[in-house]
Amino acid sequence: MQNNPELEKESDRENGFHKRIKDVDQWWLLVVIVVLLIILLITTKPDPYNRILKFVGDGIWVTLYTTVISFALVLVLGLFGGLGRTSNNKLIRGIASVYVEVVRGVPLLVQLIIWYFAFPAIVKDLGQAWNIQAFMTYKANPIVMAILGMTVCYAAYMSEVYRAGIESIPKGQMEAARSLGMNYFQAMGYVILPQAFRVILPPLGNEFVTLLKDSSLVSVVAVADLTRRGREFMAANFIPIQTWMMVALLYLVMTLIAARAVKWLEKHSRYER
């Protein structure tokens, strides 16, 4: 901690260039290899590979945007969960804890099925009981329910990530902020969360990659994502090996790129730039 900062910077700069090439390229190389492999398959054997890609293309898009939208919502809802879990208020902490424990105890697949099949049935029953027309004719939108289901589930996991991040910041930071006259929210927003965010970036990126993969579960609730489109293609063509190899490669490209992006973010959010 008490080394000469100038000296450290100097050596950083020297190593920086070589380090960057080493760290970044070997992993991007894997991305490139997988992409090349896909291109190779498509160009050398357009039938069936190009046909598969064209067929599942819209599914890739659906997978991406349901994941990204869910994750954006997870970041917000999870923050509330994390603040609730670390709150001094017993009631708030209790509510947040029950939410986290209950949601984490039920498989995502079951939760998605509940949102898509059970939830609309409940709404209809309530409509009947209270005689509300709009409720009786309620029909669940698969995409909305899929996003809702993934958000509610992953926000519970994310609450724990946030909680760990907040708890990893020394208590003195909050006290220093409060002693300067900041209220709880100002102290959180300006002092605690910016530091916690750097701590939780790796697990946060991890959650994103996991969510991207788990989004394949929405295929069971009528969302035409990459997995469901793959199943549809196979049902029509009966070539399981080629179909699922292609689908797997497409998922792999997405997750590898996401993981690289997180690493990049991590690097560019250190203290003492």
């Binding site: 020394p170 003195g172 220093a176 902020a177 750097r198």
Partner: peptide
């Protein structure tokens, strides 16, 4: 404070 508690970020 004894531990300074500066904001490191």
């Amino acid at each position: 404070f004894q531990q300074f508690n500066l904001f490191p970020h």
